[in-house]
Design a protein around this nucleic acid. Sequence first.
DNA 1: CCATGATAGATAGTCCCGCTATCGGAAGTG
DNA 2: CACTTCCGATAGCGGGACTATCTATCATGG
Lengths: 211, 211
Amino acid sequence: MRVGELSSLSGVPTPTIKYYMREGLLPPGERTSRNQAHYDDRHLRRLRLIRALLDVGGLSVAVARDVIAALDSPDTGTHKLLGAAQQTVIRTAAYCDDEAREDATAEVLDLVHRQGWKVSADSPAVAAAAEVVGALRQLGLHDFVDRLDDYAHAADAIAATDLDLVRRRPDVDGMAEAVVLGNILGDALLAGLRRLAQVHRSAELFSSGPE
Amino acid sequence: MRVGELSSLSGVPTPTIKYYMREGLLPPGERTSRNQAHYDDRHLRRLRLIRALLDVGGLSVAVARDVIAALDSPDTGTHKLLGAAQQTVIRTAAYCDDEAREDATAEVLDLVHRQGWKVSADSPAVAAAAEVVGALRQLGLHDFVDRLDDYAHAADAIAATDLDLVRRRPDVDGMAEAVVLGNILGDALLAGLRRLAQVHRSAELFSSGPE
DNA sequence: CCATGATAGATAGTCCCGCTATCGGAAGTG
DNA sequence: CACTTCCGATAGCGGGACTATCTATCATGG
């Protein structure tokens, strides 16, 4: 197919498709002449992936490019790919000062130890979690931090399902996609499910309240 | 204190503080004359909240304003506040077409029923979850959707901790903050913890792999 | 076989967002 | 009284995600 058809099938405007190709999100089509190229359903699928990452996952174009590059890279062991997927989601915000961050990092490492997780201390995931813990502390929500283990336990259950799904994938390509999408869309999914569960439990708790 | 001190204590530049006041994120100080105002530690605390919402929570200024408005609103029952906090996190992206969204909504409502959750069908949380489910389906990750119940179970455990923390809050103001921050920072926290758990489990599974 | 319309590639422009810079006039401070 | 700080307002800036336009090409159908 040509660009016009790709556009109408995907719902993405032609100039935007060109933009994605310029930015390296979408591979170029198979050239048939100087100003003509063919696209196939891989392009269509890729476009859908891009829109999912941007719209549902809330990723920036630059981050989406990195994710896709990791997906395309042939030497991608699952463990390494997981690392790449992680990099993408980690916020690089520097909220709290160095001292608070150090304390928070120690706290997270303690938690990791309590959970029996084997994770290197310089993993970006540690830094990300520490950032949030530091923020919670600075805002005085210490009781929140006191329940870290509860949250960690739930996270462990989630990761178990994640990895199980990945393991069951028939092919490596599918595995890669499952890892990335499971993380990025999974975050959005979990946020939604958490809200749902909250609504239910909150209604039960405060059913005597207003409204 | 005056603006300069507020700025140095919070680490937020003076012009940015003024910008936040213009945008309604930060209440004005107590005016002492035509061009002088006093700020207190409530302003400092609020500034820290704002930075946490923006930097750690990844909210936009406009959404942060809505969150803060809900916090300030005096008539805020906890249940209602929870609803307000939810609105803020829901992505309004329209990824999939109407038909797919309808199917996905039905699927989510089924899940809600299986979990025994009592949630009205037009809750924004339902729409948010349905959006993700629709995206997963359109991308062909059906096995992911098959494990929805596992994720829902974990979400339920998380919500239980959330609500328990809220219930234990001594004052209403603290409750409101706990709800909002627990949701917004909690999402970031869970994402981090999930990555941590994944790293651990993935290392166990694929320890024979490269690196 | 040529007019018409779509296409590739390149460049420039647009809009929004989150600040940031500047300015005029007034107030505190040594 | 000089000097700094502050308020309020307006304007500007830099980045991100498109979007519009232009030219040279090519496919196609009457």
